[in-house]
Nucleic acid binder design. Structure first.
Lengths: 115, 115
DNA sequence: TCTTTGCATATCCATATGGGTATACGATGA
DNA sequence: TCATCGTATACCCATATGGATATGCAAAGA
């Protein structure tokens, strides 16, 4: 149980940096597996497996093109993530207003200054 | 390597459903560990460990109160997630307009109808 | 000071998973 | 039909991690 029950959800799929990279590439347009392999500097089996995870959560879709398989993005699969995190965005952005942001920056600066 | 290198980032912290629950509770206000244990129906050591992960990515902060420890949310830690996913939100929401959403709904309906 | 309370940590176990490598399989072309 | 190409899958290994349980430790109270 390296991850609790719902291991096949969008949150988990996206927790893997490589898979975010794949999605980022696909955001620029459809790609074949071999193109992804080349772009990501990853072994082909690994790309295929990451693509499988992304398929299982609906974040990508496939289309056959001869012996190639063309993957494309299905961004709607990421909507649950967006919906969830947006509630928190309200907390840091709108609820406290600008002053709070300034204070946060100051605290951050102090932390970086070694205190 | 159950997860690639950057295992201690916000994306990973949030991939765990239990940890999202904890954050959701804390969004309602500060809580002690024992309060979280009670609310989440989780063993105390598990809550403590999840809190630790959340602390490591800066999503929560602690304050001592006698022998209790009060945790509070630090939503800014989730900003990287929000920033990343917002780019995709544009893809499904703004770029194609309303028509696309309608078409998607139709496709979805067809899929549910068994084709 | 001794006990209790509240929490963090250590340890054990089981499992999910990422990388590496080999291989199977379908489509295309000779 | 046979060889090759493009992908997917099967293994193997190492490791991260979640749950369970036991324990350590500091703070508060008797």
């Amino acid at each position: 149980m390296a991850r609790a029950a719902t291991t096949a959800d969008a949150f988990n799929a996206v927790a893997e940096p490589r898979r975010r990279e794949i999605l980022d590439v696909l955001a620029g347009g459809e790609r074949t597996v071999s193109e992804l392999v080349e772009l990501l500097d990853l072994a082909q089996p690994h790309v295929s497996r990451h693509l499988r995870v992304l398929r299982e959560v609906g974040a990508v879709e496939v289309r056959d093109a001869g012996r190639q398989r063309v993957y494309r993005l299905q961004p709607k699969a990421l909507k649950p993530i967006h919906d969830w995190v947006s509630g928190y965005a309200d907390l840091w952005a709108e609820r406290f207003g600008l002053l709070d942001g300034v204070l946060d920056d100051i605290r951050e600066q102090e932390k970086q200054d070694g205190h």
